[in-house]
């Protein structure tokens, strides 16, 4: 058992962390909105934590606050993400379907270039030597585990709440929902902001986890990977992002013996999963029950 955790402990945490990013896309999808903005907020949140954790300007804060600095970083990332998400979401959510997805991709690309040009973000090298919260990487389960638990509980509550039902009404038929008095724009923006805020906090937790942060964290590939978690896991199930992340994050490691051809097989699994599990992994279980 100990040997397993030595080898795969980091991977397990990665699965939780990536699942959380999956959930950050799941919320907008609940309201029928295909957004790929999460990875940008993830990157931003990481920079907030990295800067607050290493920049000399925060030295006095760190000295006085001690470990309290870490939740403060989360809070700062959360607030910044909410503000930016509202600013981006209000105009962008007038767009539908693939247009919204591409607008959010565009937003992330612009953000990456801007960050690369900000001296405080450390340029191409980025920021490194971020103060560690724990000795062992596996101990970061105390960051991502509770957050994932909270997120799942929140999703459960949300599904049963009025807000959640509004989200789903917008997803099923936006016009009808509007006619029935659901404030569609407000609901779409709310779903978007929840997702972005989550991504921001995950980023803030990830900067110490990876010990380094740079503009390569917010790539398009990483952004689409998050979408793949949700879709392969099952976009209509609250367990989808977790199941999808578990499969897709573990896959390259399972295929490690194949060396430099492992990504070919990884691609094949993606295609086969889409074809044979059109309702995602979660759909397999649901199907049996139905």
């Amino acid at each position: 058992m100990a040997a397993f955790f030595d080898l795969y402990g980091f991977l397990c945490i990665m699965i939780l962390q990536q699942a959380l990013l999956g959930y950050s896309l799941y919320f907008p999808l609940m309201a029928g909105q295909l957004s790929l903005a999460s990875i940008g907020f993830y990157s931003l949140g990481g920079y907030v934590a990295a800067i607050m954790g290493t920049h000399p300007a925060f030295e006095a804060w760190r000295a006085t606050l001690g470990w309290l600095m870490i939740p403060l970083e989360w809070l700062a990332a959360l607030l910044l993400s909410v503000v930016l998400a509202v600013a981006v979401g209000l105009p962008a959510l007038r767009l539908r379907g693939i247009y919204l997805a591409l607008a959010t991709i565009a937003f992330v690309q612009v953000l990456n270039v801007v960050v690369l040009n900000m001296p405080i973000a450390g340029g191409a090298v980025g920021i490194f030597g971020i103060p560690q919260a724990f000795e062992s990487r596996f101990a970061y389960i105390w960051f991502f585990g509770p957050l994932l638990l909270l997120t799942i509980l929140f999703t459960l509550r949300l599904e049963r709440s009025a807000a959640g039902r509004n989200f789903m009404a917008v997803r099923e038929d936006e016009l009808a929902a509007g006619a029935m008095g659901v404030r569609t724009t407000a609901n779409k923006v709310l779903a978007f902001v929840i997702g972005c805020a989550l991504a921001g906090v995950v980023g803030a937790m990830s900067a110490p986890f990876l010990n380094t942060w740079n503009a390569r964290q917010g790539t398009f590939d990483a952004g689409v990977a998050c979408l793949a978690y949700v879709l392969i896991g099952g976009s209509r199930s609250k367990w989808g992002p977790l199941l999808g992340a578990a499969l897709l994050v573990a896959l390259p490691e399972v295929l490690r013996p194949l060396k430099d051809s492992r990504l070919i097989l990884n691609g094949m699994v993606l295609v086969l999963a889409c074809v044979y599990m059109p309702r995602g992994i979660a759909g397999l279980f649901a199907g049996r029950r139905a």
Binding site: A3, D6, L7, Y8, G9, F10, L11, M14, V125, G126, F128, G129, R137, L210, N211, T212, N214, R216, P252, E253, R256
Partner: peptide, 29 residues
């Protein structure tokens, strides 16, 4: 993340005496 996984693998499964790598500085951090 890929660099961390490769290192873990070499340390626990490969039982190597030392590691040469990774390619990028960012991965090294």
């Amino acid at each position: 993340a890929g660099a961390v996984n490769a290192f873990q693998n070499l340390i626990t499964q490969g039982k190597v005496v030392g590691i040469i790598g990774p390619t990028l500085s960012q991965q090294a951090f």
